[in-house]
Design a protein around this nucleic acid. Structure first.
Lengths: 189, 189
DNA sequence: GTCTATACCTCGATAGAC
DNA sequence: GTCTATCGAGGTATAGAC
């Protein structure tokens, strides 16, 4: 038996991973705590040893996903950075995936209908994405470029979110390709 | 007492209007049929005289909203059309409004988590928006412009959807202004 | 920390009176 | 068409044993 503190942390990670997958697949409101804990290999009562409420879980799940996401850990720079981020984000495999997807796109409406605490977290994560995109830009004409960055962020999130609502795979591919193409053009490659 | 057919139609319209407002405010899953019918001035039992299930209501609500929306009834042409649509859509009053907003933005995640029938309706409405934007473009270089149109649609929907999740009004204004500015640039005014 | 058991509530949907 | 009454299912959260 490991130290109880490490044990607890591992249990919590398992819950968060399950939450990410199930929330991405069904949305916040269609996953019960019972289903979540079964998926994580525990029972319902244990949930409250880690989270004070389901709403608390929403916040922590989004934070956990953001720190693990591929896009937040891209180690390229300049144009290669933009190219990689844009192409991997606006991709069918991201849309269809429910493992650790981008919560900004997958949970956008769910968050809008939640309490301020959850929306604060979303706001922080969105600002983090914008900051990350901003960091790679060159120095000249920053004001104009900041507008482009924000518009690209909206396009990326919107492109993925809409794709997930569409039922026609051809339409999804066309939408994603359009967003990739125009986003690349805006960023200048 | 009016003809029962007209009476029924008026009741249904009231239910659909309430549904639009409440769904926009709270999301599909946080509005019960009981609350909906109370808002519409009827009781729960009457619901099933108009809709075969709650899922059926989702579809009909989105269709009803689309036909009534300002954006779908814009009677301007060419650049004036784009200017009006982009500026009115990507506006704080649209984000904060919950009267008859654009379901493509307000319900995007809710729809993604619903059954195929609802997603089919969403897909049709999205294609309708794209078609409407396409109709106003000039003839030359259509292929490139189609990509722009789809990217703009994603940016508009994403911009509004993300804005609704953010809790910081300054950030929302900055995001909306960025999207308006870049969308206008893409469309060429 | 995790388990079982349970309190208490709200949901979607149906049945039958008017 | 709309009402009231009610069913069965499933929700969050808590209490207490281990």
């Amino acid at each position: 038996m490991p130290l109880s503190k490490a044990h607890k942390q591992r249990s919590k990670e398992k819950i968060l991973d399950s939450a990410n997958r199930l929330f991405a697949d069904r949305g916040f409101n269609k996953v019960s705590i019972d289903q979540l804990m079964q998926d994580a290999g525990m029972t319902r009562g244990a949930f409250y040893a880690h989270f004070k409420s389901k709403e608390d879980l929403y916040s922590q799940t989004m934070i956990s996903a953001a720190t693990k996401s591929k896009i937040m850990n891209c180690d390229e720079t300049n144009m290669a950075f933009y190219k990689t981020v844009i192409n991997e984000y606006l991709d069918m495999s991201h849309v269809k995936q429910n493992n650790i997807p981008c919560g900004l796109a997958f949970f956008v409406t769910d968050v809008a209908n939640e309490q301020p605490e959850v929306r604060k977290v979303y706001t922080q994560l969105f600002k983090g994405l914008v900051q990350m995109l901003t960091d790679q830009q060159s120095e000249n004409n920053k004001d104009k470029k900041n507008k482009k960055i924000m518009a690209i962020a909206a396009m990326m999130i919107g492109g993925v979110a809409v794709s997930r609502a569409l039922i026609d795979d051809n339409a999804i591919e066309e939408l994603l390709e359009s967003c990739r193409s125009i986003a690349g053009e805006l960023v200048g490659y």
